[in-house]
């Protein structure tokens, strides 16, 4: 089966993971900018990270026959320092112009603080100014419901942002309706403990339909599975869904959302 992995932090994964994903049928990966596990000491750390995401990581993926795309931002975990956030925001336009950069992400909230919200609003303005797609991270666990509502309001308040050009990721049963009812795309992240299991994600598809939804593994340096996405596709077949539905969820949907950016093109193999 061919599939697209729309959210994976490959900077923190090994070549074995690339090989496994390619073997499972992965054709393209999109990698949002995120927290490194520690706070960077200055904006220069972000410059190097963005250079990696738009330079070395696409080359690493290409050696396994996978196309690699990325998203730029300062993540909400480092958004408490407004001075640093402004310095990083000033760097981003240079990278938005790179041939594999799809937009602004993963922006959002972490603890739902005032400064996080302010930096989120600055990113939304940046996306509007440069006509970019947006990929949004929603907070973890007990902070998710409140944070998702704050994020939905912040984006809807911007008159230039079309909801169909925004994906709000890491939805669960209590937030998927908030996101979809407002016209946004919704991402479902498959994690061993936090976020969703494959069966819960499939339950959500059965209740909300397969429009404007995708699944991702969001693999990073934490406990996560780079093959969670194709494993969920397998589970969908076990649950009685047709190959056409599986193909729509795991290939056509991410292609449709990311394809709103002209740079996203899946090459057909000769």
């Amino acid at each position: 089966m061919n599939y697209i992995e729309p959210h994976a932090h490959m900077i923190s994964r090994t070549t074995d993971d690339y090989l496994s994903m390619a073997t499972a049928g992965c054709r393209a990966i999109s990698e949002p900018a995120f927290w490194a596990g520690y706070d960077r000491s200055s904006e220069k750390g972000f410059y190097d990270y963005f250079s990696h995401l738009t330079g070395f990581e696409p080359k690493r993926a290409a050696s396994f026959g996978i196309q690699h795309y990325s998203w730029m931002c300062i993540n909400p975990k480092e958004a408490e320092d407004i001075g640093l956030a402004d310095a990083v925001l000033a760097l981003i336009p240079e990278f938005l112009a790179k041939p594999t950069c799809l937009g602004v992400g993963e922006i959002g909230l972490n603890k739902n603080s005032r400064n996080e919200l302010l930096v989120l609003e600055k990113h939304i303005q940046l996306a509007a100014d440069y006509d970019q797609l947006i990929l949004v991270h929603t907070p973890h666990l007990e902070d998710k419901l409140k944070g998702t509502k704050l994020i939905v309001d912040a984006i809807r308040n911007h008159p230039a942002i079309k909801p169909e050009r925004v994906i709000i990721d890491h939805v669960e049963e209590h937030t998927v309706g908030v996101v979809k009812d407002a016209g946004f795309w919704a991402g479902m992240t498959l994690y061993p403990e936090s976020k969703l299991s494959a069966n819960r994600a499939i339950d959500i598809i059965e209740q909300y339909g397969s429009d404007r939804l995708w699944m991702n593994c969001a693999c990073d340096w934490g406990v996560s599975d780079p093959l969670a996405t194709p494993k969920a596709a397998l589970e969908m077949r076990r649950r009685g869904h047709s190959e056409a539905t599986v193909h729509r969820v795991f290939y056509e949907n991410p292609k449709a959302f990311m394809g709103q950016c002209d740079k996203f093109q899946i090459r057909s193999h000769a």
Binding site: N115, E142, K144, D203
Partner: peptide, 29 residues
Amino acid sequence: RARRILEALSDPSQGPIPEAHTKDAAGAY
């Protein structure tokens, strides 16, 4: 059930908090 349990474990307050003092979430409010 799944939705109600997630809601029961969520922060019920509204509006942003003044400042984030941790990056972590605990799974219950």
